[in-house]
Amino acid sequence: MKLITIKRITKQEKRYTEEMGMLNARVTYIKQTFLNIPIRTLHSYRETYYGEVKDCCECVLSR
Results as ranks from 00 to 15, higher is better:
residue 47 E to M: 02
residue 46 R to I: 04
residue 60 V to M: 11
residue 26 R to T: 03
residue 58 E to C: 03
residue 13 E to W: 13
residue 47 E to S: 01
residue 44 S to G: 03
residue 16 Y to W: 15
residue 53 V to K: 05
residue 39 I to P: 04
residue 39 I to G: 05
residue 55 D to L: 01
residue 41 T to M: 05
residue 35 L to Q: 09
residue 33 T to N: 09
residue 15 R to S: 13
residue 43 H to N: 09
residue 45 Y to T: 02
residue 5 T to V: 04
residue 54 K to R: 13
residue 28 T to M: 04
residue 47 E to Q: 00
residue 46 R to G: 09
residue 30 I to H: 05
residue 13 E to R: 15
residue 35 L to K: 11
residue 40 R to K: 12
residue 44 S to L: 01
residue 43 H to G: 00
residue 17 T to P: 02
residue 32 Q to M: 11
residue 46 R to D: 05
residue 16 Y to K: 01
residue 19 E to K: 00
residue 61 L to I: 09
residue 5 T to F: 10
residue 52 E to C: 01
residue 27 V to Y: 08
residue 9 I to L: 14
residue 37 I to P: 03
residue 42 L to V: 14
residue 4 I to T: 14
residue 39 I to N: 02
residue 45 Y to P: 02
residue 32 Q to E: 14
residue 63 R to T: 01
residue 34 F to R: 06
residue 15 R to T: 09
residue 54 K to Q: 13
residue 37 I to C: 04
residue 48 T to L: 05
residue 35 L to M: 14
residue 50 Y to N: 10
residue 51 G to T: 01
residue 21 G to S: 08
residue 28 T to Q: 07
residue 21 G to Y: 12
residue 33 T to L: 15
residue 36 N to C: 13
residue 62 S to N: 10
residue 8 R to H: 07
residue 35 L to E: 08
residue 55 D to A: 03
residue 47 E to L: 02
residue 57 C to H: 15
residue 15 R to P: 10
residue 62 S to A: 06
residue 26 R to Q: 04
residue 52 E to Y: 11
residue 38 P to A: 06
residue 50 Y to L: 12
residue 15 R to I: 13
residue 57 C to M: 12
residue 38 P to R: 07
residue 60 V to I: 15
residue 31 K to G: 06
residue 59 C to P: 00
residue 58 E to N: 11
residue 41 T to A: 00
residue 28 T to Y: 11
residue 58 E to M: 07
residue 18 E to D: 08
residue 50 Y to F: 11
residue 55 D to E: 14
residue 57 C to P: 09
residue 22 M to C: 06
residue 10 T to L: 03
residue 46 R to E: 10
residue 61 L to W: 09
residue 12 Q to H: 08
residue 50 Y to M: 04
residue 19 E to G: 00
residue 54 K to D: 00
residue 33 T to A: 06
residue 43 H to P: 01
residue 31 K to M: 13
residue 2 K to I: 03
residue 10 T to W: 05
residue 54 K to C: 03
residue 30 I to L: 09
residue 29 Y to H: 09
residue 60 V to Q: 11
residue 47 E to R: 03
residue 22 M to G: 03
residue 16 Y to T: 05
residue 5 T to H: 07
residue 48 T to E: 11
residue 53 V to M: 05
residue 26 R to A: 03
residue 9 I to M: 10
residue 15 R to D: 12
residue 6 I to T: 15
residue 40 R to E: 10
residue 16 Y to R: 04
residue 4 I to D: 10
residue 61 L to F: 08
residue 21 G to N: 09
residue 7 K to E: 14
residue 51 G to H: 04
residue 41 T to P: 02
residue 32 Q to W: 08
residue 38 P to E: 07
residue 31 K to C: 13
residue 29 Y to K: 08
residue 1 M to V: 14
residue 38 P to T: 06
residue 11 K to Q: 15
residue 35 L to W: 11
residue 35 L to R: 07
residue 57 C to R: 15
residue 21 G to K: 00
residue 53 V to H: 06
residue 38 P to I: 04
residue 4 I to W: 13
residue 49 Y to W: 10
residue 17 T to A: 06
residue 24 N to D: 14
residue 41 T to R: 01
residue 13 E to Q: 15
residue 63 R to Y: 03
residue 29 Y to N: 02
